[in-house]
Design a binder for these strands. Structure first.
Length: 685
DNA sequence: GTAGGGTTAG
């Protein structure tokens, strides 16, 4: 066995084979060595024209891989004879440089020159360029060529074709190719799953997942990340757990991506503990791990904890990125923590993340939810990049602030700018119509405009219509609408109707609706109180007693207020002091706001336990004398509090803003809608 | 001698 000669042979053939050397240099992106070989080739130029062609192709490949596209182009232009490899190598260079349109141009000249039939290499590169530049028309032309030439059966080409359709949001086109052309590999599964997820087609994604489970494909880490992502989007913990088990059994390396995907899945499926457990066992935490766990805290309602983690993260010397800022801004939005949000704004500005679209969106959202719609609009006007979310937060911001006209203006601007509205956009637009009482226009958006943009109305849109009708005082119409539309109405829809019944003092219908709401959500204290309040207003004391009994049976406690605050004694003292002072200004306690089965002499005390009075007292105790006080409530304020707040504002010379927040839950997100914005009565006198 | 998917956090 001539073993001893083998290495020498190999070395010899390498020296004699500049093409192989060039490939080595290209693969390792070693420009220096590559140039030396190039020089050697030029000096010893004694080869046939065919091997000259191959050598030049190799050189194009070398320079393209090393980021020297102009040199590659010069070589290409100087060639007397080119073949398909010359074209595809140059095209790959343009694709890698992000010049997708140049690739399409090259492809056109190649086809029209007609002496080189494009092969699978060319088509994958060209299709990728269509994907990158989102050119569905050119992509479809390629599809035609690919079908005629039979290249569609090539796995790489098929994958690139499917990916092109997904990138161009043509899910139907993608699925057609995916399921009619035989042949799958882990790449095609990953790409189609990821694309469907990106486009929000969860049903199709689930079907593809079923295929993957059935077929005998070896999952790679991308598959795991994508399937965890699917579990998160669907909020199916069982699926997530199953996939996690599978992963642990097949001991695939769990890199930073996989770990973040698992934490994200547990966070979104409500298993914060599991996410935290993984986080605490991570050896090296990147900014992504930190941001993912902060987002998990945020999604589960632990907003303060998200901030505490930010402090810890900085102690470990990890710098925040744009996503970190977005999560923190959303946390402060949920707390309506305007000052903290403004501080984060300054930080994001200083660290250069202000111009990222997600940060801009989070800033607009934060200012809008913290009550400063002017600041929200300022960020919106100055923003560099906009996407659908940008428009949506601004439209819903205006809408929640009761500025329906401005909301609809922004929507018009969105259409003029050529941006496509989505599902959420129309929720915001319809709620703006509700604020403005534009019944006809609301129906027009629902029935005509949404169809025009190919958006199927969902329960949230129908709920907006219920709000639209009932806010306009058309309560019976709203009720009839609910029975005529066959959609699964949730508690929010009924709650919308209920609030309107109360507002329009239609206690008859209100009571019937409230009974439904109580049945759907037996633990919501607010409904019981509203119901008993309505019975009281209708002077139906038997009803009040019934509700009170029901609450006692179901162990639902409300009054008196919560004493858990460490300073509750001082707060109550402050309330008493304020009430005594405003009595001198003409305040008469309205004891009809108190439940009937309380002794008369206690009623006045109970009034002072109402949370908005406690909150204002606490605000006065803790803030500088010129600071405005913002109170955010989940329930509508009672008449007594409304009167009292007006007088307290006058007495203390403070701006007091009262907000009503309703949490609407859809797709697991939490949005806040301010129904009662800056009650005119609460503004400075 | 040339080619594909590219993940997490709003």
């Amino acid at each position: 066995m001539p073993i001893s000669r083998a290495p020498k042979d190999k070395l010899f053939s390498l020296v004699e084979d500049p093409v192989r050397l060039l490939k080595l240099a290209a693969d390792n992106k070693n420009l220096k060595v590559g140039k030396q070989i190039h020089a050697h080739v030029v000096v010893t130029d004694k080869v046939s024209s065919h091997s000259n062609l191959v050598q030049t192709n190799s050189l194009i490949n070398l320079y393209e891989k090393c980021g020297r596209l102009s040199v590659a182009r010069q070589l290409f232009d100087s060639m007397r004879l080119r073949n398909v490899v010359s074209w595809s190598s140059l095209m790959a260079g343009y694709l890698h440089e992000g010049l997708a349109l140049e690739v399409l141009g090259l492809f056109k000249s190649m086809v029209s020159a007609d002496y080189n039939r494009p092969n699978e290499f060319v088509l994958t590169t060209v299709l990728s360029s269509c994907s990158d530049s989102v050119r569905v028309e050119e992509g479809k032309q390629c599809h035609g060529y690919v079908l005629k030439s039979g290249l569609v059966f090539h796995q790489h080409v098929k994958n690139a074709l499917v990916h092109m359709y997904l990138r161009c949001s043509d899910v139907k086109g993608a699925m057609r190719v995916f399921s009619t052309v035989p042949g799958y590999d882990v790449f095609s599964y990953n790409s189609v799953l990821d694309g469907l997820l990106e486009e929000g087609h969860l049903k199709e994604a689930t079907e593809v997942l079923r295929l993957i489970m059935r077929e005998d494909v070896v999952w790679d880490s991308v598959t795991y990340v994508t399937v965890f992502g699917l579990s998160s989007s669907l909020r199916i913990l069982r699926l997530g757990l199953q996939v996690h088990c599978r992963m642990l059994k097949t001991d695939i390396e769990s890199d930073a991506f996989v770990n973040s995907a698992i934490m994200d899945m547990y966070g979104k499926c409500g298993k914060l503990v599991n996410a935290v457990n993984i986080f605490e066992h991570l050896r090296n935490r990147t900014v992504v791990s930190w941001t993912t766990i902060m987002a998990a805290y945020f999604q589960n309602g632990y907003f303060e904890e998200a901030f505490n983690l930010f402090v810890k993260m900085k102690l470990e010397d990890v710098s925040p990125n744009e996503y970190t800022f977005a999560v923190l801004l959303n946390s402060s939005a949920s707390l309506s923590a305007l000052r903290r949000g403004a501080l984060l704004h300054a930080c994001a500005d200083k660290s250069g993340f202000k111009d990222h679209v997600i940060v801009g969106n989070a800033l607009i959202n934060m200012y809008a939810k913290s009550g400063n719609i002017e600041a929200a609009n300022e960020v919106f006007s100055d923003i560099q990049y906009r996407n659908a979310v940008t428009w949506n937060v601004m439209i819903s911001g205006y809408s929640h602030h009761g500025l329906g006209k401005k909301a609809l203006h922004v929507f018009q601007d969105m259409l003029t700018a050529g941006d496509h509205p989505n599902y959420i956009t129309f929720v915001a637009v319809l709620s703006a119509c509700a604020h403005l009482g534009l019944v006809q226009q609301g129906f027009d958006y629902l029935n005509r405009v949404m169809k025009q943009f190919g958006i199927e109305p969902g329960v949230e849109h129908y709920t907006c219509i219920v709000g639209l009708l009932s806010r306009a005082g058309l309560l019976d119409e709203a009720k009839n609408y609910m029975s005529s539309v066959s959609v699964k109405w949730d508690v929010i829809a009924w709650r919308t109707l209920l609030d309107a019944c109360f507002l329009h003092r239609n206690y008859g219908l209100g009571k019937r609706v409230a009974e439904i709401v109580v049945q759907m959500d037996p633990n919501d204290v607010g409904t019981y109180l509203l119901l008993s309040n309505m019975y009281a207003k209708a002077r139906r004391w038997d009803g009040v007693v019934k509700i009170r009994k029901l609450m006692r049976e179901r162990n639902i406690e409300k009054e008196p207020g919560d004493n858990s605050h460490p300073e509750s004694r001082q707060i109550y003292k402050k309330v008493a002091e304020l009430l005594a002072k405003i009595k001198l200004l003409g305040y008469v306690p309205d004891i009809t706001a108190v439940l009937h089965d309380v002794e008369d002499e206690q009623k006045e005390d109970f009034l002072s336990y109402h949370s908005e009075k406690l909150a204002i007292a606490y605000g006065l105790m803790k803030t500088p004398s010129e600071a405005p006080i913002r109170v955010i409530k989940n329930l509508r304020m009672c008449d007594d509090c409304h009167t009292a707040v007006k007088l307290i504002s006058k007495l203390t010379n403070r701006i007091v803003e009262l907000w009503h927040r309703v949490y609407l839950s859809h797709h697991g997100e939490t949005r806040a809608e301010v129904l009662e914005n800056k009650c005119p009565a609460g503004l400075p006198f």
